[in-house]
Design a protein around this nucleic acid. Sequence first.
DNA 1: TTGAAAGCGCTAACAC
DNA 2: GTGTTAGCGCTTTCAA
Lengths: 335, 335
Amino acid sequence: MTIYDISEKAGVSIATVSRVLNGSSSVSDKTKKKVLDVIQQCGYTPNAFARGLGLNTMKTIGIMCADSSDLYLAKGIYHIEQKLRSNGYDSILCCTGYGLDTKAASINLLITKKVDGIILVGSNFIYETEEENRYIIDAAKQVPLMLLNADLDAPNVYSVMSDDYTSMYNAALKMIRSGVKDILYFYNSTSYSGIRKLAGYRAAMEEKHLLSDERLVQFYPGSHEDVCAMIGHLKGLQESGLVFHGVIASDDTLALAALKYARNMHYRVPEEFSVLGYNNSMLAVCCDPELTSIDNKLETLCQHLITTLMGVLGGNEMPKKTIFSGEIIERGTTR
Amino acid sequence: MTIYDISEKAGVSIATVSRVLNGSSSVSDKTKKKVLDVIQQCGYTPNAFARGLGLNTMKTIGIMCADSSDLYLAKGIYHIEQKLRSNGYDSILCCTGYGLDTKAASINLLITKKVDGIILVGSNFIYETEEENRYIIDAAKQVPLMLLNADLDAPNVYSVMSDDYTSMYNAALKMIRSGVKDILYFYNSTSYSGIRKLAGYRAAMEEKHLLSDERLVQFYPGSHEDVCAMIGHLKGLQESGLVFHGVIASDDTLALAALKYARNMHYRVPEEFSVLGYNNSMLAVCCDPELTSIDNKLETLCQHLITTLMGVLGGNEMPKKTIFSGEIIERGTTR
DNA sequence: TTGAAAGCGCTAACAC
DNA sequence: GTGTTAGCGCTTTCAA
């Protein structure tokens, strides 16, 4: 069933059918109805390829994420997909994994698919050297590139992010003021936002001259989901003689592990041990006591990102960088 | 950059370029190399639309799920996307929400996009009446339809699922044998798999003549993420006089709520109160004590689903229905 | 082994 | 308001 069949059955030209299909220019109500009737009756739907061929757009946005089963990224994808759809765009999802080579391959694949834009969900796409980020810079020559929670200065690359540095700085300061001095920072990502968070913690601790022992900054290298291993990591630290009565974690899972560690050590939480998480995910209310966590306004970020992308696609001048501030959601693991 | 440019630069016809591009038929090694060189040098990639127009396939599979931020569905999407990619297929993701109308709209949209197949992730796509399932049956006339964790008998529809009934039946029996008699069933979905799970619980309880009070079967109608509301639901039950010392939940989140309820009531777990979850998700190891949960082998299901889909796409005869059995992962909330 | 040319289904510029 | 027609970039006969 093609536009030719419809035009024939309706007794008009293909151009007229195309016009009613696209709601464009002037078609008399009568012919319009006639065509619509035939279309309805035949259950005809236009061929997206042919349309794309001519227009050179599929109204499709590529979404890349390292791992769609990550709680935080999954939520981001969800919001983005929804908002895209409500703007008349579809999405192609690419789960790239964490390797640079597969990321580069994925981004090229999306471009091959003629997506109208690409959204990079999560800060792990940005590396430290320009060389490593070249795959993004190059891709941006072809389509607009949107970064969620990351930052890269390059033409046609737009960043929307949460102010992780300030959020962490404020949260750390708050915990210090609550009386906890020996606060361990527990993180598992050296992505852009990971580095910013750590810097926030560092600034607060150093300001108060509390970062006496570099072991207070702890990188956890294991699996993102292996809570046991995280607990083991903290246990090892404790056994090696490091003393800490507070943990600030770069994400809720790590914080949860810290909470389980505290329970294991028979610390009373929050009286003797404080824990702070990040992302304010579902996990935060799944434990007992519930986790104090930083909410980085994911949905707001996504909304803004899509608005910006739509603007760019519409040919408008749009802000290259937008920063929202986070918020500490106080629950039972801090005083 | 088109095939014409390449053909010109290489001094051959577009047909020849097309041939080397598709590795088809016989091209002399010399011309092949020449063409390949030019392609490389120009960084040319073929236009997917034009190709699709002719071939009428995009090597793309549509993935539908109600909510990609659901822990379980997200994991399923992740595995599916990975395995699809390793088979040379891309995926378009559609988060449909839970309404029938939006599901039908999404499935049509995917067909419009000329996907080669559609995967429905999660059992909430199947309804009770054939009328409601018509949108699937109709879609299957155009492309193969794969169901993950659901079941529907129709031409060109293939189902891969976990044996939820038996898993629940066994788990319930086990809990009964451990000495818990008043077991509440706590569920939030009347999807196909939701119904099967409930039936498994029912069968075990009735076999032991333990289902005296219909209030032991409790549907929770609220948000999937609102743990507080779930706890509230159980509290309300208790206050209304219902006595129960065990909870079997249709998913880990509900089980987690039950665990928090138990703690709230100062029951000792598992000595005085047992809890069983479903999905063996990350949540199971996030609480204290850790949750006994049923693992339904999601990755295996996904692997099999993709294998089947590839077979169907390759024109082979494939099993219409495949059932795997689940496994109880014992942790700290059952004796 | 290669080239010429006819589509694939649609949009949009241009004529009427 | 409506029809004609030239592409869009590629695959695939059919000839050579």
